[in-house]
């Protein structure tokens, strides 16, 4: 019940990511996704709650909805950008594309054969959907920051997938992925800062032009 609501909210956050144009809104939405995923971890395993799972939920929530958004907010403050650069596909077009991806993800998720039945029929489709949206953001937006956010959404999808299969995979794998994520965002933040310092913008479509 709660799981389903969380997953639908996750779908809606993904769609709102496609439709909004302000960078601070992006960061808030991704932070909200982190919060939803933390709650999802608890909700999916509500019947067999262990310290491991609570730890994972807490850790992921802190990293995904506090630490990473803070770092990204600092990055946009330092790079001094407010609105996202014009995307390759407009916001309305992105929303339509996102809408078309949803049935694909649902179909794929419901037809994917998994080693054991997963809690809640929607977890796998929605995690696939978040991965799709993440990839879409990485490919469809030209600003380095939105691409990092796309990477985060992609990771959120992978995390949601992992939550569904947590019975099979130990906690440490999940925690290691989280740590990787933190490291990756850190590195990307530094690169973002360097790109901005060297090129005065973070528009990746213009990076092919060499600067003296």
């Amino acid at each position: 019940m709660v799981t389903q609501a969380l997953l639908i909210l996750l779908i809606l956050t993904c769609l709102s990511l496609l439709g909004s144009s302000r960078l601070s809104a992006y960061i808030r939405i991704v932070a909200l996704q982190g919060l939803l995923l933390g709650a999802l971890t608890l909700a999916v395993h509500a019947k067999s709650l262990s310290t491991d799972i609570v730890l994972l939920a807490l850790g992921s929530t802190i990293i995904k909805s506090l630490v990473v958004p803070r770092m990204l907010a600092r990055a946009i403050r330092e790079a001094d950008v407010r609105t996202a650069a014009r995307p390759f596909l407009g916001y309305g077009g992105s929303l339509v594309a996102g809408m078309l991806l949803l049935p694909v993800a649902l179909w794929l998720g419901w037809h994917l054969t998994l080693p054991h039945p997963v809690a809640g029929g929607l977890v796998v489709p929605v995690s696939l959907y978040a991965m799709f949206i993440g990839l879409f953001l990485i490919a469809g937006r030209q600003q380095a920051l939105t691409q990092i956010l796309g990477y985060l959404v992609l990771e959120n999808g992978i995390y949601a997938f992992g939550v569904a299969l947590l019975v099979d995979y130990p906690l440490w794998v999940e925690l290691a992925i989280l740590l990787d994520l933190l490291g990756a965002v850190l590195v990307m933040g530094v690169i973002l800062f360097d790109i901005n310092r060297d090129f005065d913008h973070i528009d990746t479509s213009r990076l092919s032009a060499l600067k003296d």
């Binding site: 639908i8 779908i11 809606l12 809408m99 949803l102 049935p103 649902l106």
Partner: peptide, 10 residues
């Protein structure tokens, strides 16, 4: 429209 499309898919 998007919300109702999500509902339909569910």
């Amino acid at each position: 429209s998007i919300l109702v499309a999500v509902a339909l898919l569910l």
